[in-house]
Amino acid sequence: MNLKEQQYICTLADTESMTEAAKKLGISQPALSLFVSNLEKSLGVKLFERVGKRLILTYVGELYTEKARQMLNLKALFDAELPGIIKGYKGRLRIGMQSFRSPHITPILLKKFKNDYPNVEIVLHEGNYRYLESLLLDNQIDLFFCNCPNQNQKIQYISLRREPILLATPPNHPKLSHSQRVTGSKYPWIDLGHFQKEQFILPYEGQSLRASVNQILDDTGIKPAKLFCVRSIGTSLRMTAEGMGISFCNESYTTYFDFNKKPAFFHVGNHIHTTEFVAAYGKGRTLPGYATHLINIIRDIL
């Protein structure tokens, strides 16, 4: 940030002498005199008038130096902060977090991150995948964390966790006796067709889980006869536990709630359906070191 013009005029105003100002600025007196003369010509008004041996500010000169000093003060503040930004221990990070996961991740994340980077400001946005994606593409956030139902060519993704999508049923549903053990998994498998006539409690279209559930329904050929939509996965799981229908959730969601009644959870379909939790940022952009550190903290939390 070059404010040579403002520095020259303010120094001349302070010394009231072309010779003294030139010495302080480290330039010749004729060079400074020519600079001031050219500036006054470009402005169309005098900044100084000579009173004896002194150069005194005109009214316009007083206005000019007032604003020039403000600019120089701002430059000094910027120069003081710049080294910390360059070295990576000062800055700002605008992040987006999936609404449902945020209460379970964000408090732990911010506490750990602030211990390591106390001078990095965090700006948090919460929402679903489509909302966070739109913020990123509009340059309103630097990166976001969300389950990724599909990928955008303008976005770079870092996989943080892949987990199965589970069917949730009432804990005492009569069809549970038809379940089968799955080798290597703590969750059994059950034929989704047993629940064809049940009420399906699903997220709304546009939520990341709904896209994954739609894929499961397509793969299994199931068309729900009764459908009830809610935005909160917690609501759908508690409704399921109360026997009001079946629902779906990511495996990690099974640990997010304290249930008075806990649903039963199962794999469904011809293979284990999974979803991916990702960190996403603009393709071609370089993340600062503290952003990479934040991503690693989330990876550890998961």
Rank of each mutant, 00 (worst) to 15 (best):
E276R: 14
R130L: 14
V213D: 00
N119A: 15
V45I: 15
L209E: 02
G269T: 13
L43G: 03
P164W: 03
K262N: 10
L63H: 03
E205N: 08
E126M: 10
W189V: 12
W189K: 09
N260Y: 12
L160I: 08
D142M: 08
T65R: 04
K262Q: 07
Y290F: 07
Q180C: 05
K90D: 07
F248L: 02
N150W: 15
S17N: 12
M18K: 15
N214E: 07
K23W: 04
G84C: 01
L302K: 03
K46H: 08
E126C: 09
A280P: 06
H293N: 04
I105T: 14
I105V: 15
I272E: 07
K261S: 11
Q70A: 13
L39G: 06
L93C: 05
H194M: 14
A279C: 13
P224G: 10
T183Q: 05
A21M: 08
H273S: 13
D142A: 04
H125V: 12
G61A: 01
P164D: 05
V213T: 07
K114E: 10
E276A: 10
T11V: 08
K154S: 06
S179G: 05
L227K: 06
I95H: 05
G234Q: 10
D14S: 12
S102L: 11
D300P: 04
L82I: 14
S236N: 14
G243R: 05
K87C: 12
C10W: 06
L167C: 00
D258C: 13
L110K: 12
K4F: 00
S159A: 09
S232I: 02
L132I: 11
T15E: 06
K41I: 11
D218Y: 11
L132F: 04
A21T: 14
A168C: 07
R161S: 00
Y64S: 00
N128D: 08
A280E: 08
P174G: 14
L34W: 13
R69N: 02
Q98V: 15
N139M: 03
R181H: 13
L294V: 10
R54Y: 08
G245M: 12
M71S: 09
Q98I: 14
S159E: 03
L72M: 00
L132V: 08
Q151G: 04
F144Q: 04
G91Y: 15
I155L: 02
R94M: 11
H178V: 09
K24N: 05
S232R: 15
S17A: 11
K226I: 07
R299A: 12
K23A: 00
E49W: 10
K41Q: 03
A22P: 02
V120I: 09
Q140C: 08
V60W: 01
L202S: 01
I141H: 01
F259Y: 07
G245Y: 13
P188F: 11
L160P: 03
F100Y: 12
G184M: 02
L72A: 04
I216R: 01
L237H: 06
M1W: 02
I158A: 03
E16L: 13
I85Y: 11
N150L: 13
Y64R: 08
Y256Q: 14
H173N: 13
K261P: 05
I95K: 04
G206A: 03
Y8C: 09
S236T: 15
G88N: 09
